[in-house]
Design a protein around this nucleic acid. Structure first.
Lengths: 221, 221
DNA sequence: CGACCTATTGAAAGCTATCAACTGGGGTGG
DNA sequence: CCACCCCAGTTGATAGCTTTCAATAGGTCG
């Protein structure tokens, strides 16, 4: 289990209950902005859902647990993405920072009062829903090698060709995202390396060498 | 391949291009309602995305294809659900009716003009996103038997206990939804039957016999 | 009643998970 | 400054589950 303690404050960071930097002078719906360290659990699956959150900067991982401990990382979020969604007033996922992150929080009631916010969230939800559809295809129909190729392409926008990508996830986290085991993820990395499609400077620093072959593996996506 | 011909009109039903019942007197953004037969492809993945659609009645299936023909049914929709989402002005999924269905269509530009519509879609997107998160857990971490149990519980609301559920999907469609093969789905049905958790009156008529055991299999969901 | 399509069941192969050992890098403490 | 420890990652061997290929059964419609 990763730490859920914020080393700056020494306390658990759970925005609905904890201190809220920058919000003292505003109402709770005025988008208080929080700066959060890496590897901090921001939301817990099953907690009462009072807030909706936007990633301003950094990376956040949403995950769900089965009663026996199996975990699925259901979504990877970056700047602009929204989380804190709820079924029956209960958070449906846990949220954990992968890197230091800046996050805006809104009271759920703000959705009705603030049409500009609602419009922004609507566009973002549409985009995230499309990404989830792609991810269902990955989880349901792709082989291990294809999943890892897809994962790396997803993290490496077309713009940054030839640059080195820093993975801020462990093999276990990648495995939980792709519906595999950490060993299978490791083997897939080794296979991509062996085929000359990627270069691993370190375990968490990847360069895509042959983008064409990667695209073909990942289903031309 | 299922038919994409509407037997009532004799023509392909593709709303952006085809005839639009009930809409002759209204602008294209005034939610023309269409009545569509079962097993009709309403939207094609990759077509230009001009409309956004709401299921009023019936069941709709969203699917994505890989270049080599592998298919994933990414979402099952019922009354209230929304589809016709787009990446880069292109439909991200194909949509096919599973039953006769009634569908509302909105011009995408209506989202900016109609805040009531936008608010409704926002709530619905949130719900669908949560369902997709659950589905990612199913696809990534559950065994074949667990997936089928989950599928049946999802189709059988708590209210209707003891009633017979009519599956409007073939084994192949269920398999494509659950990330399995049709043979594995069939074996899972047989196993659930053998264990006394369900009764199959016919291949497409299921009664859940032991809901508790089903819930345990499906991860208490 | 026969044709055809869907579903079921069986047998074998393949891919991923599991269990286990080993490697390597980073940090700590001597 | 170096040695050791610890954890993440890699690699190997085996098991298990699902897929694949194939044959049979069931049901519907002409």
């Amino acid at each position: 289990m990763r730490q859920i303690i914020d080393e700056r404050t020494g306390g658990t960071v759970r925005p609905p209950y904890g201190a809220e930097p920058h919000s003292a002078l505003h109402g709770p719906s005025h988008a208080p902005t929080m700066r959060i360290a890496a590897h901090v659990t921001v939301l817990h699956e099953g907690d009462p859902a009072r807030r909706i959150m936007e990633v301003v900067d950094g990376a956040v991982m949403l995950s769900k647990l089965l009663p026996d401990g199996r975990r699925q990382v259901v979504e990877l979020l970056g700047p602009g993405d929204v989380f804190g969604l709820a079924h029956d007033e209960i958070y449906a996922c846990s949220a954990e920072t992968l890197t230091p992150a800046t996050i805006n929080t809104h009271d759920r009631s703000a959705l009705e009062r603030d049409p500009v916010l609602a419009a922004r969230l609507l566009r973002r939800f549409e985009a995230q829903l499309c990404v989830m559809h792609s991810h269902a295809l990955v989880l349901g129909r792709m082989s291990a090698l294809e999943r890892v190729a897809f994962f790396l392409l997803r993290l490496m926008p077309d713009g940054m060709v030839g640059t080195t990508l820093h993975l801020s996830m462990t093999r276990q986290e990648i495995a939980d995202f792709l519906g595999l085991t950490l060993e299978t993820v490791s083997r897939a990395f080794s296979e991509l390396k062996r085929r000359g499609l990627v270069v691993l400077q370190r375990a968490d620093e990847v360069r895509i060498q042959d983008r064409g072959s990667m695209r073909r593996l990942a289903g031309a996506l």
